[in-house]
């Protein structure tokens, strides 16, 4: 934790992120190149789903990251309210739209996959509904943090909202087990080991790692932008 507190200073964070970003950008591009080849060329078509199984390589990592993104928002919210870290507010502002985008990608790819597989773009199934709610919570967070003339006030209100909304995360995770509806239950994160053959599991995990790198890259970049924006606003203000 000590290291994270060290990064709470925006200027220090900016120096850190500028050192990390070039390498991370290169690594992300490389990881996506390999991951897309693994997912689109190397992985065999599923014996039931055929080629549509490849949608999963985008769908599942986006779903994971939209949840990771919200957990990050809640953690940032807690650290803003507890330690008043100035960086936590800026990073939450930067991360919320990224997480919302991953939620949208997850919902869109899911309905594209659902059309040939379930015969419908959308069903009001427990997991789909809770994922949609997560997207709405993201929208609320984004709107609330930008609804005040005083940005600090918006940041703190959004932090409280993030902490309240985090209740939705376990509901999404366990919705497929609690309500046994159309969406298939978890097949990777199970106690008795993944229920997916390694020829599909490895590309999936590779893609998940690539998406995670993309997520970190976008959040770091956008946080830098937020720091710069806040500095410009401070410079613009009449003394």
């Amino acid at each position: 934790m000590a290291d994270l507190h060290f990064l709470a200073n925006p200027a220090r964070f900016r120096r850190f992120s500028q050192r990390v970003l070039p390498g991370l950008t290169f690594a992300t591009v490389l990881a996506f190149g390999v991951g897309l080849w693994l997912a689109l060329v190397q992985a065999p078509p599923d014996y039931q789903q055929g080629e549509t199984v490849r949608i999963m390589f985008v769908h599942v990592p986006s779903a994971w990251l939209s949840m990771v993104g919200y957990a990050l928002l809640a953690a940032l919210g807690a650290s803003l309210l507890v330690w008043r870290h100035p960086l936590a507010a800026l990073m939450a502002r930067a991360a919320a739209p990224v997480g919302a985008c991953f939620a949208v990608i997850c919902l869109l790819t899911g309905s594209l996959w659902g059309r040939p597989m379930w015969g419908t773009y959308w069903v009001w199934d427990a997991r789909l509904t809770s994922m949609l709610l997560l997207f709405f919570l993201y929208l609320g967070h984004i709107a609330l943090s930008r609804a005040y003339d005083d940005p600090d006030r918006g940041d703190r209100a959004a932090a409280i909202l993030a902490l309240v909304g985090v209740i939705n995360l376990p509901i999404i995770k366990f919705s497929v087990d609690w309500w046994n509806t159309l969406h298939q239950p978890a097949s990777v994160t199970r106690l008795d080991g993944p229920a997916i053959h390694s020829s599909i599991l490895i590309p999936l995990l590779w893609m998940a790692a690539s998406f995670l790198m993309l997520f970190i890259l976008l959040v770091l970049l956008r946080t830098e932008t937020e720091i710069d924006r806040r500095r410009l606003e401070a410079a613009d203000q009449p003394l």
């Binding site: 609330l144 005040y148 006030r153 909304g165």
Partner: peptide
């Protein structure tokens, strides 16, 4: 909670609904 969070916000009313409705589902 939504009312307290949006206290003094611009476009408070619509924002209040956006915050409260998902939590009421």
């Amino acid at each position: 909670l939504a009312a307290a969070l949006t206290l003094g916000a611009r476009r408070g009313g619509a924002l209040l609904a956006l915050l409260a409705l998902p939590l009421c589902v």
